[in-house]
């Protein structure tokens, strides 16, 4: 069964206490290397962002279905897959960042995590924590239902959509002829 390409959820906007976007969040801030021995995805969620100032209690704040709104160069640093999986473990549905680290992007796509690229975090008027938002992965249209605003980002490529529907890269390959 195909998954929906229209996702609705609550926005969690990763800004600092001055409400500026936090750029350059690296994989150690997302999932610190002291937890790298963890391989069971169910155990990963509790450590998500626990090394990011202001967001150390992220695991408690996050709800299933949340959509993260992020700054530039998100996920720079190491190649650890856990930095993507820890969000899946908490039920995060999708990520919208200004830009991503190259390896992080590869890992997210391979894990079937929907990621969009858009500058929405810059405007406090456009999006705030806990706003209800809706994203169309194919067209890239981001709607803020709470504030009644829209932003058009680039949609995900066919490749990302293919992998997203399959669950992950390995599952995708199983169904190839």
């Amino acid at each position: 069964m195909k998954k929906s390409v229209i996702l609705k959820g609550r926005a969690l906007v990763i800004r600092n206490e001055k409400t500026e976007p936090i750029d350059d969040i690296d994989t150690d801030m997302i999932f610190h290397n002291k937890y790298l021995h963890i391989t069971d995805i169910n155990e990963m969620g509790q450590y998500a962002f626990d090394n990011l100032d202001g967001w150390k209690d992220f695991a408690k704040k996050a709800k299933i279905g949340d959509i993260l709104v992020l700054g530039a160069n998100f996920g720079s640093g190491s190649s650890r897959q856990q930095a993507v999986d820890c969000f899946s473990a908490l039920g995060v549905q999708a990520l919208i960042a200004k830009s991503y680290g190259a390896i992080y992007k590869r890992n997210a796509i391979n894990a079937g995590m929907p990621i969009l690229q858009a500058d929405v975090i810059d405007e406090i008027k456009f999006i705030e924590n806990k706003d209800e938002i809706e994203v169309n992965l194919e067209t890239g249209l981001i709607k803020n239902l709470t504030k009644n605003k829209e932003h058009k980002a680039k949609g995900m490529s066919n490749v990302q959509i293919d992998i997203y529907h399959s669950g992950n890269l390995f599952e995708y390959a199983k169904n190839l002829k």
Binding site: I109, N110, I163, L169, A173
Partner: peptide
């Protein structure tokens, strides 16, 4: 290694 395993199986990659 994951990407390469996939490439061997699928004959393609993204």
């Amino acid at each position: 290694d994951q990407d390469i395993a996939f490439g061997m199986k699928a004959g393609k990659t993204w």
